[in-house]
Design a protein around this nucleic acid. Structure first.
Lengths: 157, 157
DNA sequence: ATGCATTGGTCAAGCCTCTTGACCATGAGG
DNA sequence: CCTCATGGTCAAGAGGCTTGACCAATGCAT
């Protein structure tokens, strides 16, 4: 028998229930956002791109920085940027302070796509808020943020 | 401008915040469970296997059923079962009522691995419960279950 | 009974995203 | 300077999934 906070084994089911609820609701959220983004005309982006957009939104970033943020190798990040550049969401330029590096920035299309994702997220949250009530929604988000901690957010979709 | 429940655009940020909190906490949960399962000696299983275990736990199932439950093709499910069979977590036998089908069942090792996952989930939930308080934890789970709905739970890890 | 579309499963090939490994160019500190 | 760390790229390959073709058992309707 292992230690897990001195809990009674009969509470295993509670942990499992919470885990499933968490994973399922996160999955629904991703589905809804992806769907909403597609309905707004951006059919060639995947959830991972959203995480990249979020990182690049504030003034752009480097391949290496993006890789660290997404928890992947810089080769994979470079490939992702290649793809986004081809699709017109991102632009590579010289880095102002480091000739080795290249600054990756969102284009207008990239920002438009990000706004679409934000709208889709708000739409999804609004639907749940309508069912749960705004105050419960606020608590929910606060509790989730506590569980999430400050660590990096790796995409897994 | 699109419709999303008549919300003010300034609330976009709330939707995004909720979405990130949801995805990050789900990711943490998966990490913790995966880690706890590994610490209990099962180092050759991935999160996806857990979803398969959960489906097979109640009397076993068929490849096709598993595929539907996991939201993947039956070829992919068959491959997953091959792997779990090789690792000793699962056993293929004849199906009692259909000679075409083969019944996939958990072995003792499979059940032991599932218990390890349940313990790890309870451990993770316990840690959060200790910080948030049991009553908030109950509300959290209930609200999440509401968001999750009844649809199938596709693994994405 | 028999004919035939349906369903469970497998084999084979390929795709997509990510990884590992090797490498070049610039930067930074002694 | 010389050296090592760092940003980026090229090349090859692994892993987990898909599509496509196929066989065998089923079950329903003649």
């Amino acid at each position: 028998m292992h230690q897990y906070g001195g809990m009674d084994p009969s509470t295993n089911e509670d942990g499992v229930g919470l885990a499933f609820a968490l994973m399922a609701s996160a999955a629904r959220m991703v589905e809804r956002i992806d769907d909403g983004v597609a309905r707004r005309g951006f059919t060639d982006v995947r959830p991972t791109h959203g995480f990249a957009f979020a990182f690049l939104a504030a003034g752009g970033g480097t391949i290496t920085g993006l890789a660290a943020h997404l928890g992947m190798t810089k080769q994979a990040a470079a490939q992702l940027v290649d793809e986004m550049e081809t699709k017109g969401y991102v632009r590579r330029g010289p880095h102002p302070r480091d000739a080795r590096a290249r600054l990756v920035e969102l284009t207008d299309a990239g920002r438009a796509c990000m706004r679409a994702a934000e709208e889709a997220a708000a739409e999804a949250a609004g639907a749940w808020s309508g069912a749960l009530g705004a105050d419960r929604m606020v608590r929910l988000r606060r509790d989730l943020e506590h569980m999430a901690g400050d660590g990096p957010l790796r995409p897994m979709w």
